[in-house]
Each structure stands twice: as C-alpha cells, then as structure tokens.
Design a protein around this nucleic acid. Structure first.
Lengths: 254, 254
DNA sequence: AAAGAATAGTCCTATGAAGGACTAGACGTC
DNA sequence: GACGTCTAGTCCTTCATAGGACTATTCTTT
C-alpha cells in the first residue's frame, strides 16, 4: 500500500513549511513574502500578484493574506493602490535633506545641484565601516554643492561602493541630474529603500567655509547618511554640511 | 398600526449613527472610541471594556472591532496586553531629551535634575502661542538644570498654563522629583500623550554659558518642546539648551 | 504556609463567504 | 478625435464562527 504523500500540495505551501512552525501563520508568511521582495523579484513598476492569486498559491485565507500585506505596508516595504495593485515601495528621500534647513524665500525658490568632482578613491576606515566594505577598497566619490535660489546651502561628499556603481562613471558629471536616487535605479538597478541619518555639529573647515560663504570655524550641521537597499545592503554613504543658523528640525513624538 | 422604531437598538449603535455615514464603519467607530479615550473616560490604569463587550455594545463584528483597536494602537492612543486588557497609553518622554546628547561615560552615570527657581509669570507672546492661551495670562515658570554624572548638561525653562497646574505650587521645588511627567499626572491629573519638538542652533547667552560652563556665544542646541494631552491640549512649553559639541541625533527613515 | 491545578477573563489567530469601491483599458457612439 | 459606457481586474469592507494563547486569580492539595 502506498503511503499518502506528506508533502504540501502547492509550491507556496512548501515554502511556508520551511519556516518556524512555532510562529503564527501570518508571521511566517510575512517573512516568506518579505524575502521575495528583498530578493528583487518584483520591480517597483510591476505589481505583485493579486492577493487572490497569492491566497490560492499559499493556501491561506484572505484575512491572513491581508494581515501580511498590512504589516509589510506598515514596515515600509510595500504600498497598495486600490483598484491597481500592490507594489514594492520606492523611497523618495532625495530632497529630504532640505527638510533640515530653512531658507529666506520659502516656496518661491528652486533647488539645484552642481557636481564639483567625481573620481575613484580608496576608502578610508570611516567610509569602509559605513559601507560595510574593506578599508582600501575602491569607491566612487562625488563632491557636490546644493543650492537654493542660486544660494549655496549644502556641501556634500558622497561615496558609493565600486563594482556596483561603475555605470555612473560612464555618465558625465553634468548628466547625473539633480536627483541621484532615480539615477542609481536607472543606471545601476539599485533601489534605495531606507536610510539612517546622524546629525552632529562641527566647526566649518576652510574648504567648506569658502563654498558656503561663511567664516572659518562657524558652526555647521553635519548630516551623515547611510542609505540601504531593501535587503539592508549599504548603497551610499553621504556627508552633508549646512550652516547651523539655517538649521531647523521638527519632530513629532507619538 | 404602530410604526416600527427606526432607531438603533443599543446606545452604542446610536453613537455610531451620528458619524459621517460615507466613511467605512471601522473609521467611524475609531472616531467614536478615540473621542471616549480623549475625554478621559478611562484612566491608564483601568482597562477598557473587553473587545467582546464592545462588539455587543456597538453591534459590530469582532473583525471590525479589532481593526479599530489596531488602528488606535498604531496611532499611539492605546496599548493592548494579551490576557490582560486594553489600556490608554501613557507616554514616557521624560528622559527622552537625553537621547539628543552624548556624554563621556555612557551607561555608568546617572541623570539628575535641580530646580533653580519656580515662580508665577505673565506669559509672553511666544509662550502664549505655544500653549494656546492669551498673551498676559499667568503661567508657572520652572527654571531647571539637568546634570549627568554631576556635570551640567542641559538648561531648561518650562512654562505651564496656570489654573491647570496650580497644585504644583503647593509642592516644594525640591519635591518635584527628577521626572516631571509622572508628577503632572499625580498632582494635576494631566497625562502627557504626545509632543512636538523643534531643534535649532543658537549662540549661548551669558546666563546659560555660566550654567553650562562654556564660553559666551558658544553654539548651543535648542530643543523647543510642546507637550500635549490626548485631546491635543498643550500642557507644557519647554525650552532646553545643551552644548552643541555634545549633540548627536540619530534617525531611521523608513 | 507553599506549591500546584483549575478557571474565568482577556486578547490573538485563522477560516469562509459575500458584496462593494476603485482603476485602467477596451469599446462604441457622436 | 472626443466623449461616454462597459467590463475585467484590483484592493477594501463587513460579517459569522471556531478555537487557541496568555494572565491573574481562586481553589486545592500537600
């Protein structure tokens, strides 16, 4: 007599069976889906399969499936549009540095960015730590000035790990555009999904003082950012400096 | 023949009927419950009625009720403990200012606070705006120094609207304790549920320089906080200053 | 008294089913 | 071509039901 097959019927149920059975089903399914998202299986322009399709594939109820999606939306991994579909979330952090600084003519002005230099460089320990690579590994270094209404506002150094961002070298510095993150995605297929920022206050160095048009040793706010992909790989290390007296940051707690 | 009563059966359903019927049921019920929480109907120590009881009272399904609770937990209004109950959330922001500043000996040291003065004062326009009262209305003003390992770290001015916080005047300045928010609750029945903070950078004034032990005009970080109750009434306006070179703030985006 | 077992009350997980709301594209009419 | 209508496909709402997990208390036993 042949033994009844103990294996699940669908491919999806098999994937689920591999997760920790002590966890609730929705938590297990969440990890399975999150893993597929992080692996880059779906681009931000293609919708994920419909919830009804996934319900069949994983053999769970609609309620469970929707719970999973809601958690992943809260987590910032996905976004849903009624009538349209479920999409991998594409972050929009590029202009966000400006939220730290205030300017004379709010609204009327326009932001601009000027690449001052772009060159290969050997990574220092600080850069290597931030990007999770080895000290001495080659990185791409961009030096950039950001303006608002023709006024210099931010000085930025940007470091990018190198095999990954090689395509950028073939783009002229003038063609990188004002927004870098869409360029990363277009040229290198890298999607920035999250970032950590650290704010400190220092005295302006000679070079920065010149660019920002202030006295030496004037206080500047330093924003250090590490941007990451969905799977938490560091993609970019950025150090931005702006005049302290234009700094203003607002935060709502709970 | 008597007309069949068109009114809902339960008191809860009647409350629901008064909300905007174009909204989904869970959104309407959320507002009804949020209003009851904000009105102070339940203290943070008493559990709300069980979800099963509310399901009967409002004549909705368990799924809808749980959706409402989940939204309110996400909003920071409630917290739930399995097996125990659902409670109004009590915020714990008091020590949080320290998260903006770093210190030499992390961990080992202990925070301390010293009230320098406590007195009635007539509110300036800035104070009145922050607290949503009239310019010239009386407020209670606390001047406070916060230390870490005996080292002065923060200078604080705190203003409290006055009929409300009168009980504090009867407490000796020395008995206010290191943590003010629990004292607000105990003495005045006011629960701090949320806050807005704004960070800017200024030059130290003479008095602050003396207290912080730094040179005049040295850069300081100013944290302006407006703390609010669940129903968004401003409870406290606070202006804290700390040395800029000890400042470090970390933020995770998405 | 102390340790363990039963219990009542709470929130949590999961399913199945029915219908509604919203969007984008195809189609036809004017 | 411009404008509506239709339609298939998506996510969204709501209900009813069943059982499990967790906590605090009471009761029993030792």
């Amino acid at each position: 007599m042949q033994s009844i097959s103990p294996t699940p019927q669908s491919r999806g149920a098999a994937d689920l069976a591999r997760t920790d059975p002590r966890l609730p089903l929705h938590a297990r399914l969440r990890e399975v889906i999150a893993e597929r998202v992080r692996s880059g299986e779906w681009s931000p322009d293609q919708p994920l399969p419909a919830e009804s399709a996934l319900v069949e594939y994983y053999e769970v109820s609609l309620g469970t499936m929707r719970r999973v999606f809601r958690d992943l939306v809260d987590e910032g991994l996905l976004e849903r549009r009624q009538g349209t579909g479920t999409f991998v979330r594409r972050a929009s952090l590029d202009a966000s540095l400006f939220r730290f600084f205030r300017f004379g003519s709010a609204g009327s002005g326009f932001p601009q960015s000027r690449i001052l230099s772009a060159a290969r460089q050997v990574s220092t320990p600080a850069i290597a730590t931030a990007l999770g690579i080895g000290t001495g590994d080659e990185v791409l270094h961009l030096h950039r000035l950001r303006l608002y209404d023709e006024q210099p506002v931010l000085v930025e150094d940007i470091w990018l790990p190198l095999p990954l961002f090689e395509p950028l070298e073939r783009i002229g510095a003038d063609d990188l555009g004002d927004l870098l993150y869409p360029t990363y995605e277009r040229a290198c297929g890298q999607i920035v999904a999250a970032a950590t920022e650290e704010l400190t206050i220092e005295a302006a160095g000679a070079a920065d003082a010149l660019l920002l048009g202030c006295a030496r040793a004037e206080p500047v706010v330093v924003v250090e950012r590490v941007a990451r992909s969905h799977d938490a790989t560091p993609l970019e290390y950025r150090r931005s400096r702006g005049l302290a007296h234009t700094f203003r940051y607002r935060i709502d707690i709970r």
